[in-house]
Each structure stands twice: as structure tokens, then as C-alpha cells.
Design a protein around this nucleic acid. Structure first.
Length: 564
RNA sequence: CGGGGUGUGGCUCAGGUGGUAGAGUGCCUGCUUCGGGAGCAGGAGGCCGUGGGUUCAAGUCCCGCCACUCCGACCA
């Protein structure tokens, strides 16, 4: 392809609304164009790369025995009503109606249509297992789209669904997908970590996420430096210290005027935040719950929500807190609550003695509070976030570190949640009916593109790994009007074209600097510069991921280019 | 959903106290250039987000709406 004929507009200026490197570079290199918040077009150069990512995914999925199909993105309400998700998705679902007033949505995820498709065509255990997938646009009306294609409202996802006769079968299907995912992300050159994840409202017995490490990642991940344990912060456990065996001291009410935060309290009482226990009141599906953790910890809302099988959960409103505690916000505690509500404490708190809590009275705290004597905990459960330095929950020895990641893949063991709801059953060899055991497996295809750029770029632009590069080679004649030089460049270009190499020739009548800048920005893996020594048959080759160039003959350059 | 910010040529932005719309960059033409986003000259390109209001006069002041964006909350 001649650069002069490319539909491409690179930009010098840094786009105003792009914050992170991948978003900036995708806009500057002309890979994508925004149509609306969280809605992007892929332009030719971006789409070529996109298709390469798709191809790798497709190859590995096919290799793993999954079968591709395509479902509609436009789906009738009934498709989601059977599972209850038509309601549950809420405003996140893009909804519309046809001229007759029939309700539709743009599919946010496709468990239901796949389950129904299998239900309607499979009856016997002999037809199982089966794994189906599609690569298709998904629609979610995100509250806050951001980071370009990383969190978009329309995005491409490869979603796969497995159907097995039992849990053992699911384990095998799951492992196949797990291995396929590893192969995919390995081939794409991504530096990623596989972490245990919360399976959330998807239900099921387990799930893992494939996280690309990046400071711009929206997820926090914990990992053990000893045993390799890794988990999403939402899920990560940690080992509590030994219980305090000190004697219980007499409870004491202390005057703490205008002290609202833990920091202020520390200063006031002259001790560390670990001497306090904070009491945070949540509204979980209309029921109030007091969650308690040590002062230097944070409540993990995912864990808390799971404990109560919550559909909706939020911090209790100030007015509710004041009604329940009988005090200003900031003085909540488990003792003397005006209204009886359930109290759940983290195991760490259960091991503490003589701690400080709010007194449920404005401007007062209690000190030397003890569980069992001063109040009862209704539940003791892990409801806190791990933090860096905590002891690993798996090996009990290593320390946990924290990192950030972009979730590029997520695999779930769904179990029978959807097959039960939608009647997706098969007959076993005794003619007895069972629900199929399902798994589901997603990869954010468009997000992967951004993740690759996050890991492969420098100040000058993208550095595509060869496997996803839109073109492998760019031939850059330094002068477009020099016939001898152009004929050498064209010869190289023609030979590479004939050999089936994806090659560009920058035949524009531009100065060399402009061409070099564009080649770097676009991230083409190999540049062949035809310049000063063209008449001697010598050209310069430079790999995008190396800083040094070298001069070789054009024959050698062609040979090298074919190997890229 | 709460709080903040911004909407002016393709892009990045400037336009005190109201008075005929600007720069840089990109684009077109010509000349000079030609190894890391060249120089000079000429040129095209704007419903100043949108609806209303105040005024002789609104990019500018007032009110509403919309869009985009940042922080937070939320997120199969």
C-alpha cells in the first residue's frame, strides 16, 4: 500500500480529551475516531490491527474445539426476561422499542440467547459437551465511559459459553478455555497475570480474570511474593494476626468533641488507627447492616454484598445513620444503637480487645470496648480489603503486594444458574433430566488493542508486536522526486508485495523527518530507509523496538523483511 | 447518581469591562528546501453547542437545555 493513498490522518497535537497513552496514541495515529462518548469507529489502520487480534483469538478458540456463530445484537426483551435480567440490568441496558411498541435491547452479554439456543437443539447427553462462541459488539450504557476503547459503551467482545453434563465436565471445558486464553495472550505479547476473581452476580463456583498490568488499570490486584497467589482486590483474602489475649479493661466513655475522622481521633487520643474499630452502616436491599473493621482498614463492598446476597447496596443515607445511632455521622458504634440492626465484624475485629468505637452519642467515643461483653456480633466474616504487606491467605508466609491491571479476559464457572432458569436440560443415559452445567468466557477484543498499546509504546508512538502490526514493514524513500532512489525503493516494495509481506511505501513528497515521525507513531515494526547510499544498493533498516539502525544491502533488507 | 470543568476553522487554543472573529498547526498554490514533524509568499476554511431573554448591538451578559470531559460513587 502506498502511504499517499492511505486513508489516514495522523495528528501532531495531543487530543484534548485523552488521558492515557493508549487513548492518545490511538487518536493521534488515526486508529479510532469518536462518534459519541464511549462509541468509536475503527479507521483502516486501527481496523487492520483489530482484525489481527480477532484472528489470534479465533484461531485459538477453534483449536480448543469451540465453534463460532453469531447472534443478533438486537434482542427482544423476552430473551432476558426468563432469567430476570431484563429488570436486573437496569439502566445499564440500552433499550428501545419497535414501531409496534415491542421492547428490545442491544445485547450487553449473551448468556440467555446461547442457553436458549442450546436448550432448543440439544436433548441428549450424547450431544454434550459443546462450547460455542461469537465475536460481536456488546452494548452497555456505562455510567462513566472512559479511557477510549478501554471502557466503552459499544465494544467488541469474544464471548464463549460451554455446556456440560456435570461439574467434572465443566472443569474440563473450563481448563480448555483457560489454556486457550493463555495461548492467546501469550501470542499477543501481553504481560498479564491470572487472578482469582469475584464471580459477582454471574453466580457460579469460581472465576478468574486475565489482567494486563498497567498503572492505568481500573482493577486492583493482590499477589503473593512467595507462592504465586493472585486475586482481584474484590476477592483477595488475607491472614489475620493472632487474637489479642489482653485482659478486658473497663469500658469508658470519652468526650471527643468535633472529632469525626479516624485521623482526627488518632491525634486526639494519641494512638494509631489500629486501636479503633470503625462502624459503617450500609443499606443492603433495604435492610441496614453495621459493618465493622479496624480503623486502618477498608470495608470491601463486594465481599459484604456477597455475604448478604445483595442486589442493591449502598452506604446508608446520613439521615438514616443519625436515626439508627442517635448521633451525628462519625460517632456510629455497636454499643447503644438506637435501632437494633445486624452487626457484622471482620475476623480481625473479633480478635481485638479494648478497642475504641463511636458511642452513638454526638461528640463521644467508647474506649476499652470488647465483643461479647459490650455488644454481640451477629456475623464474623471477611469483609475487608487486603492491603500491601498483609500475609498471604494461601501460603500463610508470603507478603501481599498490590498492582493495577486492565481486565482483558474473564472466565467463569457458571454452574446451572442460567440452565435452571431457562430450562436448558438434557437426558442422561437413564432417561433422567438434568440441567446443563455451564461456563462462560469473555475477552474484550477492542480493549485488548488498548492494553497492547499500554505495554508497547514510547514517547514517539506505538511499538506494535509484529503479530498485530497493521503492516509489518514500511519502505521510506527519503526523496520522492529522486528517480534513482525511488526505483530502488519501489523494487524493494514490489518484491515484498510479491512475497505477500504486508508492506507500506511512503511515497509522499514529504521531508524525511515527517515520514520517520509517522512511521514511529504508527508503530510499524521494520523500517527500510532508502536514502543517501541507494545508488550503491545500500539501505538502512531499523526496527521500531530498537534504537540503532544498520546499513545493509537491499537484498539483505528484503530477506530480513520477509522474516518479520 | 453527586461534585467540578469545557463547548469558537480538521486539530490545539486565544478572544478584560458587549461594537464587523483570531493565532498556531493541518489543508491548497507557488518558489526555495530535503535524514527526525523545514522557510518564504499567497489562499480556502467558522450558525462561536443549542433554545430563549436583555440590548440599537451578544462569541462576550442572564435563564433553560444538550453534548463532551475530569474526580468520586457504581459496574455481568
Amino acid at each position: 500500500m502506498k502511504v499517499s493513498e492511505l486513508f489516514l490522518a495522523t495528528q501532531r497535537e495531543i487530543p484534548a480529551d485523552a488521558e492515557i497513552p493508549s487513548h492518545r496514541l490511538m487518536l493521534r495515529a488515526g486508529l479510532i475516531r469518536k462518534m459519541a462518548s464511549g462509541v468509536y469507529s475503527f479507521m483502516p489502520m486501527g481496523y487492520r490491527t483489530y482484525r489481527k487480534v480477532e484472528a489470534v483469538i479465533r484461531e485459538e478458540m477453534d483449536k480448543a474445539g469451540a465453534q463460532e456463530l453469531i447472534m443478533p445484537a438486537l434482542l427482544p426483551a423476552e430473551a432476558y426476561q426468563g432469567s430476570g435480567r431484563w429488570e436486573k440490568f437496569g439502566p445499564e441496558m440500552f433499550r428501545l422499542s419497535d414501531r409496534g411498541g415491542r421492547s428490545f435491547c442491544l445485547g450487553p452479554t449473551h448468556e440467555e440467547p446461547f442457553t436458549e439456543a442450546v436448550r432448543d437443539s440439544i436433548r441428549s447427553y450424547k450431544q454434550l459437551p459443546v462450547t460455542l462462541y461469537q465475536i460481536q459488539h456488546k452494548y452497555r450504557d456505562e455510567k462513566r465511559p472512559r479511557f477510549g476503547v478501554i471502557r466503552a459503551r459499544e465494544f467488541v467482545m469474544k464471548d464463549a459459553y460451554s455446556f456440560d453434563v456435570d461439574e467434572a465436565g465443566l472443569d474440563i471445558s473450563y481448563k480448555k478455555m483457560y489454556d486457550a486464553y493463555r495461548a492467546i495472550f501469550d501470542r499477543l505479547g501481553l504481560d498479564y497475570t491470572i487472578v482469582d476473581a469475584d464471580s459477582g452476580a454471574m453466580g457460579g463456583s469460581g472465576s478468574q480474570e486475565f489482567m494486563v498490568k498497567s498503572e492505568v488499570g481500573e482493577d486492583a490486584i493482590c499477589f503473593c511474593d512467595e507462592c504465586g497467589y493472585a486475586a482481584n482486590e474484590e476477592k483477595a483474602g488475607w491472614t489475620r494476626g493472632a487474637a489479642d489475649t489482653a485482659a478486658e479493661l473497663e469500658i469508658e466513655k470519652i468526650h471527643t468533641p468535633d472529632v469525626k475522622t479516624i485521623e482526627e481521633l488518632c491525634g486526639f487520643l494519641n494512638c494509631g488507627p489500629d486501636a479503633f474499630v470503625k462502624t459503617i452502616i450500609y443499606n443492603i436491599d433495604g435492610k441496614f447492616v453495621a459493618a465493622m473493621c479496624r480503623g486502618d482498614r477498608d470495608i470491601n463492598e463486594t465481599k459484604l454484598g456477597n455475604l448478604y446476597d445483595a442486589t442493591e447496596m449502598e452506604l446508608a443515607a446520613f439521615a438514616d445513620v443519625e436515626m439508627i445511632t442517635g448521633a451525628k455521622v462519625g460517632f456510629a458504634g455497636p454499643v447503644n444503637l438506637k435501632q437494633k440492626i445486624e452487626i457484622v465484624v471482620d475476623p480481625e475485629v473479633a480478635g481485638m480487645k479494648n478497642f475504641v468505637v463511636g458511642a452513638c452519642e454526638s461528640d463521644y467515643h467508647f474506649k476499652n470496648v470488647n465483643i461479647g461483653r459490650d455488644f454481640e456480633a451477629d456475623k464474623v466474616a471477611d469483609i475487608t480489603n487486603a492491603k500491601a504487606g498483609d500475609i498471604c491467605p494461601k501460603c500463610g508466609k508470603g507478603k501481599l503486594g498490590m498492582a493495577r491491571g486492565v481486565e482483558v479476559g474473564h472466565i467463569f464457572k457458571l454452574g446451572t444458574k442460567y440452565s435452571d432458569a431457562l430450562g436448558c436440560v438434557y437426558l442422561d443415559n437413564n432417561g433422567k433430566e438434568h440441567s446443563m452445567v455451564m461456563g462462560c468466557y469473555g475477552i474484550g477484543v477492542s480493549r485488548v488493542l488498548a492494553a497492547i498499546i499500554e505495554q508497547y509504546h514510547d514517547d514517539d508512538g506505538i511499538i506494535w508486536p509484529s503479530i498485530v502490526a497493521p503492516y509489518k514493514v514500511i519502505v521510506v524513500p527519503t526523496k520522492a522526486n529522486d528517480e534513482e532512489l525511488m526505483s530502488v525503493a519501489n523494487k524493494i516494495y514490489d518484491e515484498l508485495m510479491a512475497a505477500g509481506v504486508e508492506v507500506l511505501i511512503d511515497d509522499r513528497n514529504e521531508r524525511p523527518g515527517v515520514k520517520f515521525k509517522d512511521a514511529d507513531l504508527l508503530g510499524i515494526p521494520l523500517r527500510i530507509t532508502v536514502g543517501r547510499r541507494a545508488s550503491e544498493g545500500i539501505v538502512e533498516v531499523k526496527r521500531r523496538n530498537e534504537s540503532e539502525a544498520s546499513e545493509i544491502t537491499s537484498e539483505e533488507a528484503i530477506k530480513l523483511a520477509k522474516e518479520i
